[in-house]
């Protein structure tokens, strides 16, 4: 018997292959339709422009791997940026600013994870109140847009490594590092495998002796950390904090994961897929902005359509995966 896996085309790779194909096709469509689309510059901008979404989505993907959800991430992004803005305005040393900013989301994630585990509370509602808390905290810091004056952020926003006519910016680098770390954790560490196990079947994982509760708490902490890091990166673009920023980002992050082949029920998916899912959303945005006449809202319609087709594809894939002996 020639196993399909040996041909490198296992059913299990089907969603990610489909996602990659869609990405390439979309990219080609862009390339054939618009001049200057197939350049390094456009590609690297894709990474730069979607770094915040991508970094957030990595954390979200880990949460979804366990079968959970984190609705707090968008407000954590916005409030982290606000914390940076307010603290720099107060003249706090930058290192301390960075630590506080990153700790904010990480601690919030830790607390949410603890409540979800300890009270066996629905993640949906717990992270929703996390969302309220973070957003509310941001509003309290300031209702207006607060500019960031520190040199560090000015420099960070213009930093980049030239590659051809493109520029590998700091956000893009951080995105790639987070993705690489995510892939590493998911594939090479016990923690990563426990995360998948938890999403596969919590009861089984428990019976197999895996640290279910600890893993759950870690996952929400990781998501909070990623959201905070994304919020920090966000300041490089805006050089300000604003309470209403990043509204709806949590749904985009979920979309990244789902388009990337992650199953909402948990247990299946890849971090690499999430990167592609993010980039697909990015390409759609880029194409629409190149087009000029199509308005921004077409992005949502396209992304919704993408979601529908990927979910139906997964549905067929799951239903069609016959048992073998």
């Amino acid at each position: 018997m020639i196993s399909a896996a040996k041909l490198g085309f296992s059913r299990r790779n089907l969603p990610i292959i489909a996602t990659m194909t869609v990405f390439v096709v979309l990219y080609m469509i862009g390339g054939m339709t618009f001049r200057g689309f197939l350049t390094n510059r456009v590609f690297f901008n894709l990474l730069t422009d979607n770094a915040v979404l991508g970094i957030t989505a990595v954390g979200m993907t880990f949460v979804i791997f366990t079968g959970g959800i984190d609705l707090s991430v968008a407000s954590v992004v916005s409030t982290t940026a606000m914390i940076v803005a307010v603290m720099t305005q107060a003249g706090v040393p930058n290192l301390f600013v960075i630590i506080c900013a990153i700790l904010f989301g990480t601690l919030l994630g830790l607390v949410m994870g603890f409540i979800i585990h300890y009270f066996d509370a629905p993640a949906f509602i717990v992270t929703l109140s996390g969302q309220f808390f973070a957003r509310g905290f941001g509003y309290i810091l300031s209702l207006d847009s607060v500019p960031i004056q520190y040199d560090f952020y000015q420099k960070a926003s213009s930093f980049g490594i030239r590659i051809g006519n493109g520029k590998l910016t700091l956000p893009a680098i951080i995105l790639l590092v987070v993705i690489a770390l995510g892939i590493f954790i998911s594939k090479k560490t016990k923690l990563g495998r426990n995360i998948y196990a938890l999403g596969g079947n919590e009861q089984s994982a428990l019976l197999m002796g895996l640290p279910v509760g600890k893993t759950k708490i870690i996952v929400y902490t990781m998501s909070g950390f990623c959201a905070s890091l994304a919020g920090f990166v966000y300041t490089f673009y805006t050089l300000s904090g604003y309470g209403l920023a990043a509204i709806g980002l949590e749904m985009d992050a979920i979309a990244s994961a789902v388009i990337g082949g992650t199953l909402m029920t948990g247990g299946y998916g890849t971090i690499f897929g999430t990167l592609i899912g993010t980039l697909i959303q990015g390409v759609i945005k880029t194409i629409i902005s190149f087009h000029g006449e199509l308005s921004a809202y077409w992005i949502k319609i396209f992304v919704g359509g993408m979601l529908l087709s990927f979910i139906l594809l997964q549905r067929v894939f799951v239903a069609g995966s016959g048992k073998r002996d």
Binding site: M251, I254, A255, V258, M264, S295, A296, Y297, W298, I299, K300, I301, F302, V303, G304, G305, L307, L308, I311
Partner: peptide, 16 residues
């Protein structure tokens, strides 16, 4: 997931 589709696409449709 089923309702996420319309949540995302629906707002775009409204804006359209």
């Amino acid at each position: 997931i089923a309702t996420l589709i319309l949540m995302v696409a629906g707002r775009g449709m409204a804006q359209l």
